[in-house]
């Protein structure tokens, strides 16, 4: 290890300067030279059998070097290595960065591009360093297949790749409407809203103007999720309304509580009694008798 002039290092920032400046050490540590040891090496294209540049290039730490220059640090610790192939250089940079599973989509895209340009195989070892799983190549293939507007939404954390894939046919203005609505939706609710909008557009053959109008109307309603669910599941919603009406009629003011199985998928209803007195018991028996008389309507729902 030796101390290298920051002015020189800035000039040697190489093609692996692909990481966001999110993990800079505090300025105080940079001033004291207490950063990770930077690595310099000539990059060697093993496939072409040629060294890209005779001069050593910085393999990792571009943001640190630039920040050091900004705050007037003169030297930083670095190690000079012999010529490295692009795969070894990329692996070294990923190990130095040490954020497996924590890279943003734009960083992943940059890693993927670098690997593609320099014919670096996206094998298990590399994938583990990027995604902490074996899914880097597959996830990038899916991400890159998205339209730019959906890639931006994924990059911004507004939706996940799977939702973007499912909803990719929605007009961009619908995504803007849902993402930009003043009302803040949680991540999972936004996912549901987009999915149901996409399914509704598919079901009803809605194209841009109608789809956007639908999205605007839904987002302006008091409960967008409920409004959309009613449109997406009209028969199930009607069953729920019917059950709610029956529930009110049969149990309101009684010590009974009546519960249906979720989405009416199940064997039967659950009745709960809360008895605090003999009167409660009498009212419960009376309510149960009324329930028996109207049970056909109840059991029709299952």
């Amino acid at each position: 290890m030796q101390m290298e002039r920051v002015a020189t290092l800035v000039q040697r920032v190489g093609p692996l300067d692909i990481f966001d400046q999110t993990r800079l050490p505090p300025d105080q540590l940079i001033r004291q030279g207490l950063t990770a040891v930077l690595a310099l090496a000539p990059l060697h294209d093993s496939a072409a059998g040629a060294t890209d540049a005779a001069e050593a290039q910085l393999l990792w730490g571009g943001p640190i070097v630039r920040r050091a220059a900004e705050i007037g640090v003169g030297e930083l610790p670095a190690r000079r290595l012999g010529p490295l192939g692009h795969r070894d250089a990329l692996m070294l940079a990923l190990r130095m960065e040490a954020r497996a599973g924590g890279y943003s989509w734009s960083e992943r895209e940059a890693i993927h591009r670098y690997a593609g340009e320099h014919r670096v195989a996206l094998d298990t070892e590399l994938s583990q360093l990027v995604t902490a799983a074996q899914t880097f190549a597959e996830s990038m293939e899916r991400y890159l297949a998205l339209a730019p507007i959906w890639r931006r939404a994924v990059e911004a954390g507004a939706v996940d790749v799977r939702t973007a894939e499912l909803c990719g046919a929605l007009p961009p203005a619908v995504l803007d409407t849902v993402s930009g609505a003043g009302r803040r939706l949680s991540f999972s609710n936004r996912r549901l809203v987009l999915t149901w909008l996409s399914e509704l557009c598919g079901r009803d053959g809605l194209h841009e103007p109608a789809a956007v109008e639908l999205a605007q109307n839904v987002m302006q309603s008091a409960d967008p999720l409920d409004a959309l669910r009613r449109l997406r599941y009209p028969r199930l919603s009607a069953m729920e309304d019917r059950f709610a009406a029956l529930q009110r009629r049969l149990t309101q003011g009684t010590p009974l509580e009546l519960k249906a199985p979720p989405e009416f998928e199940g064997a039967g209803y659950e009745v709960q009694l809360t008895l605090r007195s003999r009167d409660d018991l009498a009212r419960a028996i009376e309510a149960l008798q009324r329930m028996q008389e109207e049970s056909d309507e109840l059991f029709e729902l299952l």
């Binding site: 028969r235 998928e265 299952l302």
Partner: peptide, 22 residues
């Protein structure tokens, strides 16, 4: 396909099926 836009509910085995009474 269009049939996927029908109404399905989650069942105990994690699969989706038409509404039970249907």
């Amino acid at each position: 396909r269009p049939y996927i836009h029908d109404e399905f509910v989650g069942c105990a085995d994690g699969k989706f099926r038409y509404i039970q009474r249907e």
